[in-house]
């Protein structure tokens, strides 16, 4: 569907070729293509605009003293800027609590339950932790069953209370159970909710207040479009979450939501989900994500052609 950015930039870069210095005129066409590529990748409209302005300021007046052509310089500037935007210090998961409590949050269907399982599995197999999953989604049909099936698949105990419709109470009981039984990590799965659903946002705020998690994670589908900023901001306003999980990256989405979310809430993207199976979890690499958003599988070859 979408031409990738390298092709587009190649075209735009014809304008730049032969100039020794990046100027207002020769940079305009290139930036238009960069902006378009970002929008095609679902980067938020306003953020794409800001981003290209930043790149422009950095680019203007730069002499091309080295062997780099102006086009090469532009590509490098764009990629570096994107990588920096999505990067920063990633501290990993805070496991300092006894037990460490991890609260999952996010929209409906974003991948919270699946990721809860993946994280439990990861902490158990890679970090030698004893993890407990707690089923606090009392709304979605068969949500509790789903977490039990997941728990069985990975050999992790699941705490649930089918008669109870109060997620605050269930989460507290789950943590008490963990303390009494020597678990050192507790992962709380919650129901999906929309940011505009006041009652449901209050509910998760109450869970958060009651259990004081070491780590609150916002789980977001990497296919999300322009709305990513609204949702991320609303959840962050309520939960001041610690990190972002980007799921379903095994698809072919460009995943521009990653930049949008990072720009709006400035929280690290801690893990990515790359499949439905329990081992499909990876840490986040800003540089790879930048390539993906720009549709540049191979930046080096682009630079060589520029």
């Amino acid at each position: 569907m979408f031409d990738n950015l390298s092709e587009k930039l190649d075209k735009a870069l014809h304008v730049l070729k032969g100039h020794g210095q990046i100027t207002e005129i020769n940079v305009a066409e290139t930036l238009k293509e960069v902006r378009r590529a970002l929008l095609d990748a679902d980067v938020n409209f306003k953020i794409a605009k800001e981003f290209t302005n930043t790149v422009k300021e950095k680019a203007l007046g730069q002499d091309v003293l080295t062997s780099l052509q102006p086009g090469q310089l532009m590509v490098k500037l764009v990629k570096d800027e994107l990588t920096q935007l999505m990067g920063g210090d990633v501290e990993g998961i805070n496991l300092s609590g006894a037990p460490s409590i991890i609260l999952m949050s996010g929209l409906q269907g974003s991948g919270k339950t699946t990721f809860s399982g993946k994280l439990a599995n990861f902490l158990q197999t890679k970090k030698s932790k004893k993890a407990l999953l707690v089923a606090c989604d009392v709304y979605r049909p068969a949500a509790i069953d789903q977490l039990h099936v997941v728990g069985e698949q990975i050999g992790v105990e699941v705490f649930s209370d089918r008669g109870n419709t109060d997620p605050v109470a269930i989460s507290k009981a789950g943590i008490a159970h963990a303390k009494a039984n020597g678990f050192n990590v507790v992962i709380i799965d919650t129901a999906g909710r929309l940011a505009v659903d006041e009652q449901m946002m209050n509910e998760i705020a109450n869970i958060h207040k009651a259990i004081e998690p070491q780590e609150t994670l916002f789980v977001v589908d990497s296919m999300t479009g322009q709305d990513a900023v609204n949702t991320a901001k609303a959840f962050n306003d309520v939960l001041n979450f610690d990190g972002v999980i980007l799921t379903k990256l095994d698809g072919d989405t460009r995943g521009g939501a990653a930049i949008s979310i990072k720009s709006v809430v400035n929280k690290p993207i801690k893990f990515i989900g790359t499949g439905e199976k329990m081992d499909a979890i990876d840490v986040f690499y800003p540089s790879r994500m930048a390539d993906r958003i720009l549709g540049m599988g191979d930046v080096v070859s682009l630079v060589e052609r520029a």
């Binding site: 569907m1 979408f2 095609d40 990748a41 679902d42 929209l107 269907g109 589908d221 296919m223 999300t224 479009g225 322009q226 709305d227 990513a228 949702t231 698809g251 072919d252 989405t253 460009r254 521009g256 939501a257």
Partner: peptide, 11 residues
């Protein structure tokens, strides 16, 4: 299609 999905819905 999920209403919050962006351009990937095309594909």
């Amino acid at each position: 299609l999920d209403g919050s999905t962006g351009q990937n819905a095309f594909e």
